[in-house]
C-alpha cells in the first residue's frame, strides 16, 4: 500500500515538474498557437540564472528567492526579444515557426556552452529543501519536491487569476478568441502578443529555477524536457489551462507507475503510446475551444 502511495507521490512530483515546464507553453502554444522550440532554452536560462546568482549571493536560500523573479525577468526578456525579432513575422506559418525557433534553440545552447562550458554544473540548494518529511518508515517525501509542487500550484493559481481577472488577461483571451475583432475593438494585439510571450517565457525561467533543485544543469537540459512539455499541452487541449494541469499530473503518475513496474525507457514509450491512444479519443486534446472556423 505504501509503495503505491509513494509511487503516487513520485508521480505527482513528476507531474508538478511537467506542469511547471508546460505552463509557459500552455500560454505561448496553447493560447497563441506558437510552437517555440527555444522554450527549453528559456528554462535553461532560468537555471543558469541561479548558477550566476550564487556567485554573487552566497546564501542558497536568498539566492533562490531572488532567482525566482530574476529568472522570470531574464527568460521573459528573451521571449519578448524572440517574439519581436522573429515570431511576429511568422504567425501565419506555425510549422515554420517550429523550425526557426529550433535554430534559435541551437544557437542559445551553443552560447551556453561557450559561456558556462559544456559540462553540467551543480547549484547549491537551501538547507531547508535538502531534507525529507517522514510520514511512515516507507513513505518519505522530499522537501525539494514538495517545494516544486507548491511552486507549480502557486504558478497555476497566479496565472489563472491574471488570465481571468486582470485587464491584460481579458485582452489576451480576446485576442485568442478573435484577433481581428480584438484589433478593431482597439486592443493593441501586437503588444498583447508580446506580453503573453513575456509571461509564458518568464514561467519557463521559473521552471528552470525549480529544475536546479533536482539535479545538475547543462546546455542541453532544455532539449530533454521540451518534448514532454509539448505533449502535455497537445493532450491538454489548446487554449485551456486546466487541460494542461490535469494531463501533467496524469502523465506524471502514469510514468511513475509504469517506471515502477518496468524501466524508465519503457515508461517513456508507454507515455507516448498513451498519448497517441488518447488523441484517438480526443483529437483536439482534453478540452477544446469550439469554433466554426474552417481550419
Amino acid at each position: 500500500m505504501t509503495v503505491i502511495v509513494s509511487q503516487l507521490f513520485t508521480g505527482v512530483s513528476i507531474g508538478a515538474v511537467l506542469l511547471l515546464i508546460a505552463l509557459g507553453l500552455s500560454l505561448t502554444f496553447g493560447q497563441m498557437g506558437v510552437i517555440n522550440m527555444a522554450h527549453g532554452e528559456f528554462i535553461m536560462a532560468g537555471a543558469y540564472t541561479v548558477y550566476v546568482l550564487q556567485k554573487v549571493i552566497t546564501g542558497a536560500g536568498w539566492s533562490l528567492l531572488v532567482a525566482l523573479p530574476l529568472a522570470f525577468a531574464v527568460a521573459g526578456a528573451m521571449g519578448v526579444l524572440l517574439e519581436f525579432l522573429l515570431i511576429r513575422r511568422l504567425y501565419a506559418r506555425p510549422l515554420d515557426t517550429l523550425l526557426v525557433t529550433w535554430g534559435v534553440s541551437l544557437i542559445l545552447q551553443q552560447l551556453a556552452r561557450d559561456i558556462f562550458g559544456a559540462p553540467n554544473v551543480q547549484t547549491r540548494a537551501p538547507d531547508a529543501l535538502t531534507g525529507n518529511i517522514k510520514i511512515t518508515d516507507d513513505l518519505v517525501l522530499s522537501n525539494n519536491r514538495l517545494f516544486i509542487l507548491a511552486l507549480a500550484l502557486l504558478a497555476v493559481v497566479a496565472l489563472t487569476l491574471v488570465l481571468r481577472f486582470s485587464s491584460l488577461g481579458r485582452r489576451i483571451r480576446a485576442v485568442v478568441q478573435n484577433r481581428d475583432l480584438a484589433a478593431v475593438s482597439g486592443i493593441p494585439t501586437g503588444r498583447v502578443d508580446r506580453l503573453t510571450f513575456l509571461i509564458g517565457s518568464g514561467l519557463a525561467g521559473v521552471a528552470g529555477v525549480a529544475l536546479t533543485l533536482l539535479g545538475p544543469i547543462g546546455p542541453t537540459m532544455g532539449t530533454n524536457v521540451i518534448i514532454d512539455a509539448f505533449l502535455v499541452v497537445v493532450a491538454g487541449g489548446i487554449g485551456h489551462l486546466k487541460g494542461s494541469v490535469i494531463v501533467a499530473f496524469a502523465l506524471g503518475t502514469l510514468q511513475s507507475l509504469v517506471e515502477y513496474s518496468t524501466t524508465v525507457s519503457v515508461a517513456k514509450v508507454g507515455v507516448f503510446v498513451a498519448i497517441v491512444a488518447f488523441l484517438q479519443w480526443r483529437p483536439q486534446g482534453l478540452f477544446t475551444l469550439r469554433t466554426r472556423s474552417l481550419a
Binding site: F29, G33, I35, P94, L95, L98, I227, F230, L231, V234, T263, V264, S265, V266, K268, V269, V271, F272, I275, V276, L279, Q280, P283
Partner: peptide, 27 residues
C-alpha cells in the same frame, strides 16, 4: 484519421523519435 495535423503531428512525430532512441539505449 483523427485529423491530428500541423503542429500536433510534428510534435507527435518528434516524440516518436525521442521514444525510439530512449528505447534503444535502454535495451
Amino acid at each position: 484519421r483523427r485529423r491530428v495535423r500541423g503542429a500536433y503531428f510534428a510534435i507527435l512525430s518528434q516524440a516518436l523519435a525521442a521514444a525510439m532512441a530512449i528505447l534503444l539505449i535502454g535495451q
